[in-house]
Every structure is written in structure tokens, then in C-alpha cells.
Simulated assay, not measured.
Amino acid sequence: ESADEVIVPAFTHISTANAFALRGAKIVFADILADTMCIDPADVIKKITPETKAVVAMHYGGYAADMVLLGDICKKNGLYLIEDAAHSIGATHNDKHLGTFGDIGCISFHETKNIHCGEGGAFLINNPELLKKAEEVFEKGSNRAAFLRNEVSEYSWTGLGSSFGMNNLSAAMLWSQLQDLGVVSEKRVAIWNDYYAAFKSIEGIILPPESESGFNAHIFYIKAQATQADGLLALLNEKGIAACRHFPPLNKSPFGEKFGKTHCTVAEAEYQKLIRLPMHIGIRKTDTEFIADIIARFLSK
């Protein structure tokens, strides 16, 4: 409803907020933690009002947000906890898959993800109370799922829904990759570790947290001083390296400001430093060393 508020991290993809804005909710932006780039539970607490209905945690690059603390906060305040696990296919935290902690989890199979089918995704219903509604939405606003289970004699229009089924060609492309998810994750982690080894002795940059068991190595990034990041990014692009910024804070975007002018100081500051480096299973160790050498030379000047 129009008065409902949903708390989302300021540092996330547009789609995270769009999912709720499209349905009339007011988006409330929360700040992030600098080490994981995930939503800050302390700021979430500050942003909760009587109108808050849900909190969204985005697991950046496959790093887990603090789901235990966020779960406690949501339970205490009667809120839904939703996971944007777009980066997290195959990633686990404490032997539990990301996307399975909250009431709902969302996985992306967009072309930029570890495995993909061009466009597509998965909707994980972890709260049984939401299953019937999810089926209705998926079945174009009908009780067709109940009909297929012989629970009703015919199906009819029971609510709002749409067509979300994946076409067979995309599904076949995805299915073959799902069989190799473990192999893909292992290769990506090996490349991520090559990057880390090549960069760990370079002064003037901050590296992401070290990988741990269950990490899926979706992204490798570095942080440079904000005054140097633009020049470094331009040099990398000039050398043919597809480095880029990531996630301009939504609270400072033209449309995000329509929900009120807010400051998320950590997200705004870290965005100015973060440079995302190429990450795919075709990257070789020599590539990571080449990129590291360019960055080391730039920073030594």
C-alpha cells in the first residue's frame, strides 16, 4: 500500500528498490557497513517506523549480510525479511545457503551472474505462510496450482499476478549450468584468490574481506583513495580492462530522492573508492598479475 515503507540498502542495484516502488511502497534507504558493503543493522533499527513492513538485505558480491541480527530485528518488530541474493548463487554462510535465511530470497540468472540464462531468476519462499500467495502471483493471479494438485475442481482469477515462467530454451541453458555450479564456483574462487595474492602487497588500496568456506567469488573489487579512483579507473579502461564503478548510491539518484533526501554517508563514501575488476572463468593468473602491475605502477607515482 502507498503508506507502507520498505527499508533497502542505499548501495544496491536499482532492481532491489524497483520491486517495491512499482507496487506503491515508500523506499527508505539504510546505510551499509564498509567492510562487507552490506546493509548496516544498526541503521536499519534507526529507520524503522510504524509504517515499516519489510527489510531487504542484499548480499554484495556473495558476502553475507548479518542475517542473524537482521532476523532478530525483523522478528522483534514484526517485519518481513527479504534477501536480495542476486550475487549469491551457490554461496553459503555457516553451511546455510544465502537466500534461505529470510522470509523470501531472490536469485538472479542475469547474464552478469556466475551462471545465467540471459535473463531470469528464482524466487525462494522460506515462509510457508507466503507460499499460497506466491503461487497465485506466479500463476497469473489464479489458483491454478491448487487445481493441478486436485484441491479444487477448476481454477479462476483469485488475485493479481503475471506471467513469470521461463521459456524452455533459457531453462535448458540454465539447467546445464546448474549441473556444473560446483565446478564454476571452484574456478571463480581460484581466480579470486589469484587476484588477492597479486594485490595483497600493493600499498594504497583496500582489499575485500578474505574468502571463506562457502564463498562464491561473484565479484573482485579494490578500494582506492577517492582522489585517485577516477584516474585509476580511466587508466584501466584505457588499457582495455573492463573495470567499473559499482552501484551509485540510490539515495542520491534522481528517482531515489523522490522518496526524500537522505544521507547514507558510508555508502556515499565507499562508492567513491570502489573499483570492480573483471571476473569470469576465462581470467588467467597472468591476467590478474597484469592488472595488479598496472595498478601498482599508478599508485607508486
Rank of each mutant, 00 (worst) to 15 (best):
A34Y: 11
H246G: 00
E119Q: 13
L160N: 09
F298M: 08
L131R: 07
L233D: 02
S213V: 13
D103Y: 02
E212H: 11
A25S: 10
Q179P: 00
A296H: 11
Q177L: 04
H59M: 05
N94K: 13
S213G: 08
P209I: 07
N251I: 01
G71A: 07
H87A: 14
L207P: 06
A19E: 12
S176F: 00
T227M: 12
L181W: 00
G90K: 04
K53I: 07
F259A: 02
H97F: 15
D43M: 08
G214I: 07
L124C: 07
K273W: 08
F220K: 06
L148K: 13
S170E: 08
L22C: 09
L207G: 10
P128T: 10
E268F: 05
E268I: 04
T92K: 15
E51S: 10
R276L: 14
G231S: 12
D180Y: 01
L250A: 09
L233P: 03
F215H: 15
I115V: 14
D180Q: 14
I125C: 11
G141C: 06
S176E: 12
W157P: 01
E154R: 08
T158H: 02
F109L: 06
A242K: 13
E136Q: 13
Y60E: 09
K258Y: 06
N114K: 12
E270V: 08
L207W: 09
K223M: 14
S185P: 00
V28I: 15
S213P: 01
P249L: 02
R284Y: 12
A21G: 10
A19K: 09
I202C: 01
P248A: 14
T49K: 09
P248I: 05
G118W: 10
G102A: 12
K132N: 07
D40S: 15
L22T: 00
I82A: 05
N237Q: 14
L181N: 00
P278I: 07
P248T: 03
K132A: 14
I241T: 11
E289V: 12
G105E: 06
I27Q: 00
D95H: 05
I281H: 05
E270N: 04
R144V: 00
T265V: 15
A145P: 01
D35G: 05
N77F: 11
N237F: 05
Y195V: 04
A198N: 03
A91L: 02
Q179I: 05
I205E: 01
R245N: 08
A30F: 04
